[in-house]
Design a protein around this nucleic acid. Structure first.
Lengths: 214, 214
DNA sequence: TTACTTCAAACGAATGTTTGTTAGTATTTG
DNA sequence: CAAATACTAACAAACATTCGTTTGAAGTAA
């Protein structure tokens, strides 16, 4: 499977097609900077453990100034979580539509998780850990989106079992083992590690698909 | 000091606080009650998201009263994390000393994790997620304890590979896959689930040792 | 001008904790 | 035995601090 570039990456780059026609909005995209730094801090100290003043210091402005770019602290959390949720869901849809074997589809999903964790780590961590602090309309929405994603993933495993590609294992156990196995990457992976991202993917896939025992 | 007129006036409260303490026969361990309820709340809303007043309401007393039983909010977190850490470490030592095969030792450790998560779920969750809010002398201690535990676990896997019981897989990947696979139990397991605790253990061990693929 | 950005100051609410005090219970003392 | 004492656990009130957020004024660039 060819891993595609992941949409909606952390930015740091204004997507404005500059050139010279419209030089008026020469923006240093402060908003995205706030979101990026927020994700880093939320990952590091948790949503509740991060104050707007902490965040402001990291961004390089006063706390009050940030309210010209974002509506509230809750909105920051919501934007981060929603972006990650959409990324997962759209990528799952892409993979579902391919013609590969179920084993390859599952492998592609595992690679997707690991790659996203490596490329967009802080945001993924926030979506994994701090989603529960979302305010109420969005909280339910997020949980539903996640449930749908899990259902889609589980369906692939089920179909793989039905097709004889997988062992007749409990689907929930397989699903959650895979989903959680991929989470440690966030705590473990450092760019300068002995393993490259692709090697890491290969090893995890081996472990999950063929198991530890000989 | 100025003695306050307390006569009458339950102060804005319609629900009578049920003043009289029970006769001396009953001695509820208030301290442990506080720790237990704290673990539940910390798991549910996080350490930072739980106020001492929240906790007090759950315990059934005022926030100030709890300070007769515990020294600080930080101490609560420390007591919970330390207890769990010691449990894991001593159980690992027990398993290391048995004469079983390495595969059986790893299986026993996996069972230990699952069982502890089921039997002592809230505390284990807190030790998994909120340890980073420990105050500084204890934070380093906790991280060291965890690192030692991981080293001991990794050694078992290494020896199992050397003995030919396991595939020559990357030890860190195997270790973290196992450790994380077991964490989802906390989010997933409900006492009234279709799977019993033992069945769950069996399925996870199968998944981890023999893998998903056929 | 107009539109946007920044910040110091302040807001009310909530935080963990301390204080002063009271009521019961256990223990010692006369 | 009863009276005096000490201890425990509970409470309301207040503490200083920090929180997220709003306000209003000043600055900047088109």
């Amino acid at each position: 499977m060819t891993p595609k570039p992941i949409a909606g990456a952390p930015a740091t780059e204004g997507a404005t097609p500059e050139k010279h026609p419209e030089p008026s909005s020469r923006r240093p995209n402060r908003r995205q900077l706030i979101l990026d730094e927020a994700a880093k801090l939320f990952k590091q100290k948790g949503f509740g453990g991060t104050s707007m003043r902490d965040l402001a210091r990291e961004v390089g402005m006063e706390a009050a100034s940030m309210y010209n770019h974002i509506k509230s602290k809750d909105e920051i959390l919501d934007l981060i979580c929603t972006r990650i949720a959409h990324t997962y869901i759209s990528q799952l849809a892409d993979i579902e539509q391919t013609e590969a074997s179920y084993a390859d589809k599952v492998k592609a999903l595992i690679r997707l998780h690991i790659r996203l964790m490596i490329e967009d780590g802080p945001a993924v961590s926030v979506a994994n850990h701090d989603w529960k602090y979302l305010p109420e309309p969005q909280l339910t929405q997020f949980k539903e989106a996640r449930k749908n994603y899990e259902k889609g993933f589980a369906r692939l495993i089920e179909q793989g079992i039905a097709a004889g590609e997988f062992q007749p294992i409990n689907v929930s156990v397989a699903l959650f083992t895979i989903l959680s196995a991929v989470r440690w990457v966030e705590l473990w992976y450092r760019p300068g590690r002995e393993l490259s991202a692709e090697e890491l993917e290969d090893h995890i896939i081996t472990m999950l698909l063929t198991g530890l025992a000989k």
